[in-house]
Simulated scan of single mutants.
Amino acid sequence: MSFKTPKFITFDCYGTLTNFEMGPAARKQYANLVPADKMDGFVESFRGFRLDEVLGAWKPYSEVVHNSIERTCKVWNVKFDAADARAIYESVPTWGPHPDVPAGLAKIAHEIPLVILSNADNSQIQSNVDKLGAPFHKVFTAEMANSYKPRRQGFEYMLDQLGCGPEDIMHCSSSFRYDLMTAYDMGIKNKAWINRGHEPACPFYEYREIKDAGGLAGLVGL
């Protein structure tokens, strides 16, 4: 079943298009500080603190990472060094796309304008976007919106900048907590969940599920 062709297809970037390697970066940085049998728990705590850090007022993403890993170290009784946090943050621009993304985007990029709304700093995002292999009409960051997802302000900013309403877009993400729950609350009817395996299905939020970016063309009838 396909959606009505939207004016824009909007995307989360990290995790959905770009392979989100924050966990692997933390594992690498803390390999000599965290015992192997505790590493999964350490990384899971880091994930949870990152979400908590973006729910308040905007701050640079370097601070989000710094605060999250510092709080994680406190919980796990691991020595914190700001240089470790900085190394994890500075790895972000090196991350590339999921293997299915360039070909999947190529099927739609010249038919419908593509847009990114990302929890990123302005200084990070372009390096990751350049690796996606497709032209993007607009790229919006949390820094531009002065707010991180899952707060609504970023979505509101994006729609204002595009000059359209919730009915005019299809929003695509691999995350319910950061994107699709908020999109649902905002009345965005056309939603695609790219199932990357890092969150369970949540049918209440009324989306179409696809296994990878190759399924996007079928959703919009291309």
Rank of each mutant, 00 (worst) to 15 (best):
I169S: 14
F176C: 00
A142V: 07
H98E: 08
C73L: 13
S127R: 10
S91V: 02
Y61W: 09
M158W: 05
P166R: 07
T5E: 04
E199R: 01
G41H: 12
K79C: 06
K107Y: 12
D52R: 15
P102K: 04
P135Y: 08
D179C: 14
I9Q: 08
D121Q: 12
R50H: 03
E63K: 15
I9P: 09
K79D: 08
A26H: 10
A106W: 08
A183Q: 05
H137G: 08
T5L: 08
F8V: 04
K38D: 15
V43D: 08
Y157H: 12
I112S: 08
I210K: 02
L162H: 04
W193D: 00
D40M: 07
Y205Q: 00
Y89V: 04
A217T: 10
D52V: 15
S45A: 09
M158I: 04
K211R: 05
N128H: 07
T5G: 05
M186V: 06
A109N: 08
N195H: 09
P166Y: 09
I125S: 04
A183W: 15
K38V: 11
S123H: 07
A83F: 13
H66A: 12
I116C: 00
A142E: 02
E53G: 03
V43G: 01
G218M: 08
P35A: 13
F155W: 03
V92S: 03
E44I: 03
G154H: 00
S123D: 05
A192K: 06
E90G: 00
S175G: 01
R151K: 13
P97G: 06
K211E: 06
E167I: 07
P24K: 05
K131H: 04
K4W: 02
P6N: 11
N32I: 12
M22L: 10
A57H: 02
H198Q: 01
Y178D: 04
N32S: 02
D168A: 14
D100I: 12
F20I: 10
N67V: 12
G23P: 06
E53A: 11
N77S: 15
P99G: 12
E21H: 10
D84R: 01
A83L: 08
S62C: 07
A25D: 08
N190I: 04
N195P: 01
F176D: 00
Y14T: 14
W58G: 02
I116H: 01
K74A: 15
F176G: 00
H110R: 05
H110K: 07
S2E: 03
E199F: 15
Y61L: 14
W58Q: 03
F176T: 00
M1C: 03
K211Y: 04
N119L: 09
I210D: 03
A213G: 14
A31Q: 09
